[in-house]
Amino acid sequence: MPLDLDDLRRAPDIEGPDLRAWDAADRLILDESAAARVGIDPGQIVVIGDTHGALALGAAADSRDSAVGGAGGGAVRAVGGAIRAHQDALLGERALIANAERLGLAGRVTSHPLDGALVRDARIVLMRLPRALDQLRDTAALIAAHAAPDVAVYAGGRVKHMALAMNDVLSERFDAIDVSHARQKSRVLIARGPYDGHDPEPRRATHAGLVVCAYGGVFAGTSIDIGTRLLLENLPDRIAGARADAAIDLACGSGVVAAALARQHPDLRVYACDQSAAAVASARATAEANGVADRVRVERDDALSALPDASASFITLNPPFHAGAAIHEGLGPRLFADAARVLRPGGELWTVFNSPLQYRPALERLVGPTRQIARNPKFTVTASTRR
């Protein structure tokens, strides 16, 4: 029987009464693609942009349970490999794995990087439409380059987050674009006939001598957002007590701050991390473009879970405040707490945040004494000293 999407959970991602592991767009994508998936080897089904496993596990459950009448009245059952999935967010990937194990679907979905191997010879692609057109453009080019010639892409989202420009972007790589009827304020675009695909390359821009590289979907792209710019303008000339490997750029995005720290302090080694796969790839490209790749290590991580306690003297952070499309103030404090764990006593966390969020009390409570370094009409930079 079809998977009951209400059985899915977001954990280990942040959970709350107003946060669900699926929405109406996931259900519509599964329903619109159901007939096309009948009899397809699961190994030829690819899922991109799933948040917490609704698409991948819904398709896996259908493949496990499907049996249709074949020639002569026999039964044809979809068998074969596992569904391939890519999720940009590490917590979403871990939530999919946890949901699969809990719902008896372990091993039916495998996680992959966003590369040619993910979509090679795929015949069905289920996809959540990203908000960023550059991210959609990158993904469409990748699918067109490596999927099977008869691939059908079912790309859906909430109508309020969709734009006609999405049809135009898909038309750059596919001959035919069909549009489903809207249901529960959701819609699906179906793309067929791939052509002129290619492997995406990061976009580049230079700001005051600093090269910024970004793949589609990375926060701020190749620009430097106002908050990060304020942080960069106020970074200390000297990092007191920092050891050669003690600086960290937490939630690094495109890697702008990590590269700037490495350029400003030639003897410093920087650890940069983000849970976004696109951000990690972008930060590595940014470090390479600025000639500091030998001193900037970039990893995909949930906060700083890979680092030991009391191992750093200096951390920078521009915390995210969106959980999907919703603003959620619990994201920042979670990162503050892990930064406090990793800082040595006397070490400092330099944070830039949207001033209305009023993070300073949380920084005082979770890290230690906090002073304001800079402020403009929208953003505040603070330095918190680990107790």
Rank of each mutant, 00 (worst) to 15 (best):
Arg10Trp: 04
Pro12Lys: 08
Asp18Ile: 00
Asp23Asn: 14
Asp26Tyr: 00
Leu28Tyr: 01
Arg37Ser: 12
Ile40Gln: 09
Pro42Asn: 05
Ile48Thr: 03
Thr51Phe: 12
Thr51Asn: 14
Ala54Glu: 04
Ala54Trp: 05
Ala54Phe: 10
Leu55Cys: 11
Ala56Thr: 06
Arg64Val: 13
Asp65His: 11
Asp65Gln: 13
Gly70Glu: 14
Gly81His: 12
Glu93Asn: 09
Ile97Phe: 02
Leu103Thr: 09
Arg120Lys: 13
Val125Met: 06
Arg128Val: 09
Leu133Gln: 09
Leu133Asp: 10
Gln135Pro: 00
Arg137Tyr: 09
Ala141Pro: 01
His146Val: 00
Ala152Gln: 15
Tyr154Asp: 01
Gly157Lys: 01
Met162Trp: 01
Leu164Asn: 10
Ser186Met: 07
Ala191Asn: 08
Asp199Gly: 04
Pro202Tyr: 13
Ala208Pro: 02
Cys213Ser: 12
Ser223His: 13
Ile224Tyr: 11
Arg229Pro: 00
Arg229Gly: 14
Leu235Asn: 08
Gly241Phe: 06
Gly241Lys: 12
Ala242Ile: 12
Cys252Phe: 07
Val257Trp: 08
His265Glu: 03
Ala285Ile: 03
Thr286Phe: 02
Leu307Lys: 03
Asn318Tyr: 05
Phe321Leu: 01
Glu329Ser: 12
Gly330Cys: 01
Ala339Val: 08
Arg341Ser: 03
Val342Met: 12
Val342Gly: 04
Trp350Thr: 11
Asn354Met: 04
Gln358Val: 13
Gln358Tyr: 06
Pro361Val: 10
Pro361Asn: 14
Leu363His: 05
Leu363Arg: 05
Thr370Glu: 10
Gln372Met: 15
Ile373Trp: 08
Arg387Gly: 15
